[in-house]
């Protein structure tokens, strides 16, 4: 659990605080996506949690412990940290970069070697090809994945990720999000993840926190956020198509199934309603068949896209 209480940071000489009175709790085993415009204080917040920046005020508790009283070195070794600009060590190969925290923790060689292979595979990099390359021999996206692997290496209970997939192409990005999502659920990590991308935020965050000029504007589950943006700023940030984005949060399995058979290739029940809608539009139909029988009808989607009070499909 990460608990930020009335956290603020005032950089010397700055006219306004970078972070102002931020109170935010990330419950144990859940993830919170931090989004907001450039310069709104996202990175500063993560750096305060990792004790790289001393807060001007407020408190931080991690797993119930006062993080500001803890020994910073010990604290940091228990936190997986992906920095915004990756920051790989240029003189160390990929394997050595990933082994950083396990080495600091004094793991033995065999355990480190096995772990390096495992996390490389996890981020989709073939250990045989990549383990002994230097950072400058990698593409930007490959470097970012090594940065994520390095943060995961010692299996820390808490992860701080600052735009971990910013330089990765959309296809791979989707795959990595899938992977991270599976990982988060499976390993029950407590995660604070910064992103610029609303879709990534609603996909990876159990909750989403929107910051504006260092202040928390809204903190809610993705479905709630997309259905009820707190103000015009949030609505604008989420985009005109927030109803469509909301459809991506639900699978066909969660929607009412109609008995009428519909011709065509059936969709898997695990597909999202967003994908189902795209299929209807592509096929020019008002319903699509579902694997295992029955169909999904266009008329059942509005309730998921933008629920009116009382008809909420899954209230957070």
């Amino acid at each position: 659990m990460i608990e930020l209480c009335d956290l603020s940071k005032h950089w010397p000489g700055a006219p306004a605080p970078a972070v102002a009175g931020l109170t935010l709790t990330v419950p144990e085993g859940t993830s919170c996506a931090l989004i907001g415009p450039s310069g709104c204080g996202k990175t500063t917040t993560l750096r305060m949690v990792n004790r790289l920046v001393a807060p001007s005020g407020g408190s931080i508790r991690i797993g119930g412990q006062d993080a500001l009283r803890a020994d910073p070195v010990t604290l940091r070794r228990g936190i997986g940290y992906v920095i915004q600009n990756v920051g790989l060590f240029p003189h160390r190969d990929v394997a050595a970069n990933i082994a950083t925290v396990p080495r600091l923790l004094g793991w033995d060689r065999a355990r480190i070697a096995a772990r390096v292979e495992a996390v490389l595979a996890l981020v989709g990099l073939d250990p045989a090809r990549f383990a002994h390359r230097l950072p400058r021999q990698l593409s930007g996206g490959e470097r970012q994945r090594v940065g994520v692997a390095r943060a995961l290496a010692a299996d820390p209970p808490v992860l701080l990720m600052d735009e971990p997939f910013g330089a990765v192409d959309p296809v791979l990005r989707g795959r990595l999000q899938e992977e991270v999502l599976r990982l988060l659920k499976q390993l029950r990590k407590t995660v604070l993840i910064v992103t610029h991308d609303v879709e990534e935020a609603i996909r990876l965050g159990d909750a989403v926190a929107i910051l504006r000029a260092g202040r928390l504007v809204q903190h809610a589950a993705p479905a709630e956020l997309l259905a009820h943006p707190a103000d015009g700023f949030v609505a604008g940030f989420l985009g005109q198509d927030r109803a469509l984005k909301r459809l991506a949060l639900f699978t066909i399995a969660e929607a009412p199934r109609r008995a009428e058979p519909v011709p065509g290739e059936p969709l898997a029940a695990t597909a999202t309603l967003h994908q189902a809608l795209a299929e209807m539009l592509a096929r020019g139909t008002r319903a699509v068949p579902v694997v295992g029988g029955g169909s999904l009808a266009l008329d059942d989607l509005p309730g998921f896209a933008a629920p009116s009070p009382g008809t909420e499909a899954r209230s957070p």
Partner: peptide, 26 residues
Amino acid sequence: DSQALEAATGLGMTARQRLLRVELPL
């Protein structure tokens, strides 16, 4: 590289480890 320094500290190196493992080699 300031990002490498940020990572070194952020991952939990002591000042001495950072000096010996990152700053001096670079």
